[in-house]
């Protein structure tokens, strides 16, 4: 049975998408052009993350993958893009042999070889996006463009932050970004601006933005387990926050799919325990400054209100110790 205890963190800090650029964070339209169009990344945690993701998909298929039956062609398009990117960026890890419609995909990290007929889902063990998604640590969400909006028609989600692929299946971008449970949200207008921006994304010119959150000793927080993680959040203390609270960063990449015209969301989620922030003093200072300054409604919206004060208190104690050390020199 899957355990939610977080058994990995980013170890190569150069790959951690640190989210803050100033000591004061507010919602903003922070979309940027993606400099490296290829979304495939193999980090030191690749194997651990992919194995965990596969376990989740096996144990909780209805929670972790949802699709409509009419999306097969769109899913094949995504499969093709991801396979080509993987083989292009990491030829030592991934290989594809295309003999007409007969394809063979090799994942050398896992020592796996799969042959299938492109376009024939019966030759794959899972639906095309579900199959290829199990080779990469990212979450994948396919939003179909219709009537100036986007509708979630395929989702493979293993790192949920107040999200559920099962619940959000078929919902529009606006519905998904409706105010979170029982909390008024300042970001509503931002969601509308982001939706309008997504409408303008062109094929071959992907964009990116970074979202962040804090996680209290959890891999993810979805609606399905609200009864479990809801009460657990108050078990965080200033003494254990350094180990148990992680800065969760979600690097979101948006691709316009040229054939289906859908937008593919590729989400790279990474974690850094608060205690590891001291490895880069600038990151520690920025995070401490940002967290001290989070308005109440934003903390509620992000679901971090019950353990934010303890997290800030932990950072304050570290900061004071550091300052005392400097003064004693």
């Amino acid at each position: 049975m899957f355990t939610q205890s977080l058994d990995f963190k980013t170890t190569d800090l150069n790959t951690f998408p640190f989210p803050f650029t100033s000591g004061n964070y507010r919602y903003s339209n922070d979309l940027k052009k993606l400099s490296n169009v290829n979304c495939i990344e193999v980090t030191p945690e690749y194997k651990l993350q992919v194995e965990t993701k596969r376990r989740l998909l096996e144990e909780q298929p209805h929670i972790r993958f949802q699709s409509f039956s009419h999306t097969m062609e769109m899913q094949w398009e995504v499969l093709e893009m991801l396979i080509d990117m993987a083989a292009d960026r990491y030829p030592e890890h991934f290989e594809v042999i295309k003999d007409g419609d007969k394809w063979t995909f090799k994942n050398h990290i896992f020592g796996e070889t799969d042959s299938f007929v492109y376009g024939d889902a019966s030759t794959l063990p899972n639906e095309p996006l579900d199959y290829i998604g199990r080779h990469f640590h990212n979450d994948f969400v396919l939003m179909v463009h219709r009537d100036s909006n986007f509708y979630l028609e395929v989702g493979q989600v293993s790192y949920a932050a107040l999200f559920s692929a099962n619940w959000n299946k078929g919902m529009s971008f606006d519905e998904i970004h409706a105010p979170v449970p029982f909390v008024s949200r300042k970001g509503d207008e931002l969601a509308d601006r982001v939706r309008k921006f997504l409408l303008s994304i062109e094929p071959g010119k992907p964009w990116t933005r970074i979202n962040w959150n804090l996680m209290a000793d959890r891999w993810d927080v979805n609606y399905e387990t609200m009864d479990v993680w809801g009460p657990q959040r108050s078990e965080i203390t200033p003494e254990n926050a350094g180990k148990l609270v992680r800065l969760r960063v979600e690097e979101q990449k948006f691709y316009r799919m040229p054939r289906s015209n859908a937008i593919l969301f590729v989400l790279n989620t990474q974690f850094l325990p608060l205690e590891d922030l001291t490895l880069r003093q600038e990151w520690f200072d920025l995070t401490y400054s940002v967290l001290q300054d989070i308005p109440g409604p934003m903390a509620e919206y992000k679901g971090i209100a019950p353990f934010l004060p303890q997290s800030v208190e932990y950072l304050r104690s570290i900061d004071e110790k550091k300052k005392a050390k400097i003064n004693n020199k």
Binding site: W167, K169, A178, P181, Y223, M226, D227, G230
Partner: peptide, 18 residues
């Protein structure tokens, strides 16, 4: 019972709690 309705699920969201 949450305030959001899904036309796919044909119901309001029910958040589990203890």
């Amino acid at each position: 019972i949450g305030p959001f309705y899904s036309i796919v699920r044909e119901g309001y969201i029910g958040y589990p709690y203890i």
